[in-house]
Each structure stands twice: as structure tokens, then as C-alpha cells.
Simulated scan of single mutants.
Amino acid sequence: MRPHRLLFLLIFVLLSACGSRAPDYVPGLPRQFGDAAPYDWRGRNVPAAYAIHGVDVARYQSNVDWYGLRAHGVRFAFVKATEGGDYVDPMLGRHLSAARAAGVPSSGYHYYYFCRTAQEQAAWFIANVPRRAGDLPPVLDMEWTPTSKTCRRRPPAEEVRQDAATFASIVTAYYGQKPIIYSTVDFFRDNEMWRVPGVEFWLRSVAGHPSEVHPGHDWTFWQYTGTGLIPGVEGRIDINAFRGSEQEWATWLALRQQR
């Protein structure tokens, strides 16, 4: 059998094993991804312009074929780990171990509540997410929680930034890497999160490029849809882009993976 025919058959078998067909093409997105509610991407500042894409998952993605995601271009994953000071996502261990087994660099993220101290929440995250060589940096997810049944507190911006800095300092000492801070559009603006020193940002912006939605501010990861469709996962999933080329991704990994 000719080599190119063998390669085609291997790819066909692999994609068939993922159990779902490629999604319909959405202009502006990488061709291997779809979107259940796509934004009307236009111009050059579109997700498809970036080489490296990944996902973030939680208990809502209960059936994930990580080998299938990797085959369709998923290069990294952020996995929901903890909330506040007393909750652990029930899919944490399963998602992390499966992503690692499939060769998808990953790490856990902590969802912050303003009704416990930063010290308590950092300790809770550390207690539930062991340090592991090769993992990505930990992530701190900070956003307002208006629908929470237990904590809707909205402290002043200075307190928010101090909490972020305190959490970052504690987890940096344990994992050997500064956390990435995830933030939504309103939270990032309300609290001037760019004033938190020495951290990288993962910014949500599902209706425009970060240069338009967060003008003048730096970012490393961009969450560009919360309704993504990828063969290998049932239902909708968040999809993200890394700000850089293949070579810049390799350099970033070499500097930022845990040791």
C-alpha cells in the first residue's frame, strides 16, 4: 500500500473513533472547530489567525475523548479544580489524568469567591491540585458571582487586586510558577485587573478581538467562544487561543511548565 494511502486510512480510523463528524465550517474559526452560536467574525483579527488552540472544561463536560480532541487540534486544557474554600469539581481528577495521558498540556483552575480570604482559597486549591512536572501554570478565575447562592459580595477594586496578588504569591511559592489570571470583560474593567503586577492574563472576549474589547492591555490566552463544537466532546465547550506562533508556544511552554 502506498504511504499516502496508509496515512489517509490511519487518519480516517482515528477520526472515526472519535465518534462524531467534523462540525460545519464557521468563517473566522479554525476549520476543525464549529460553534453552536457563532459570532460574525470579520477581518484579520479572528481566532483562525492563531496557531495554538485549547479548551477549558468542568463537570459539565462529562464525556470527553481527549485523544479525539488532540487529533482535532486541541493543544492545551484548563480544568476546573476548586471553588471558594470547600468545593472540588467532581471531574477534576478524571479530566486531568485523561488529558495528560493524551499528551494535552493541562492544569487546574480555581474559581474565586469574595467571602473567604485569599489565603484560605489558595490553601484549598493547593490541597486538591498536586504539583506535577509538565503541567501548565495554575489559573485563578476571577469574575463577579451575581447568581451565587452563597456569595455575591463585590468588594472594591483595590481589595480585589490585593486578593489576586495574595493568592498568586501563595500558589507561586508552591507550584514554582505564577498563576494565569482569567477574567471576564466587565470584571477586568471594573477592577482594573491589569494593575495586578507580574501576571499573565487569559481574557474572555466572545464578541470581538481582545484588541477591540480590551484595548491597550496585554494577554496570553483568549477565550473566544463559550459555545464551541469539537469532535471528541459532547455538547458545547469553551475554546481558547494562545497569543503567538508555534515557536512562541514552544518557548512559552519551556518557560512556564511546572518542574
Rank of each mutant, 00 (worst) to 15 (best):
R2G: 11
F8T: 07
F8R: 13
L14Y: 02
L14V: 14
G19D: 08
S20F: 00
P23H: 01
D24Q: 12
P27W: 06
G28C: 10
L29G: 05
L29A: 02
Q32N: 14
G34N: 03
Y39S: 11
D40S: 14
D40W: 01
D40F: 01
V46R: 10
V46S: 06
H53G: 08
A58D: 13
R59G: 12
Q61V: 10
N63I: 13
Y67C: 03
T82A: 07
G85V: 12
D86M: 01
Y87D: 02
Y87P: 05
M91W: 05
L92Y: 15
S97M: 09
G103L: 12
P105Y: 00
G108F: 08
Y111L: 13
C115T: 02
R116F: 09
T117M: 06
T117P: 03
A118I: 12
Q119F: 02
Q121Y: 04
Q121S: 04
Q121E: 14
A123G: 14
F125S: 09
I126G: 11
I126V: 15
N128S: 10
R131H: 12
R131T: 09
G134Y: 00
P146L: 09
T150Y: 13
C151E: 07
P155G: 05
A157P: 09
V160H: 02
A164D: 00
A164N: 05
A165I: 08
V171E: 03
A173G: 14
Y175M: 11
K178I: 00
S183F: 00
D186Y: 06
F187M: 06
R189G: 07
E192Q: 14
R195M: 08
V196Q: 01
W202M: 01
G208V: 06
S211C: 01
E212N: 06
G216H: 01
T220M: 10
T220I: 07
G228H: 08
V233C: 13
N240W: 09
A241G: 04
A241S: 15
R243M: 04
T251K: 13
W252K: 04
L253R: 15
L255I: 01
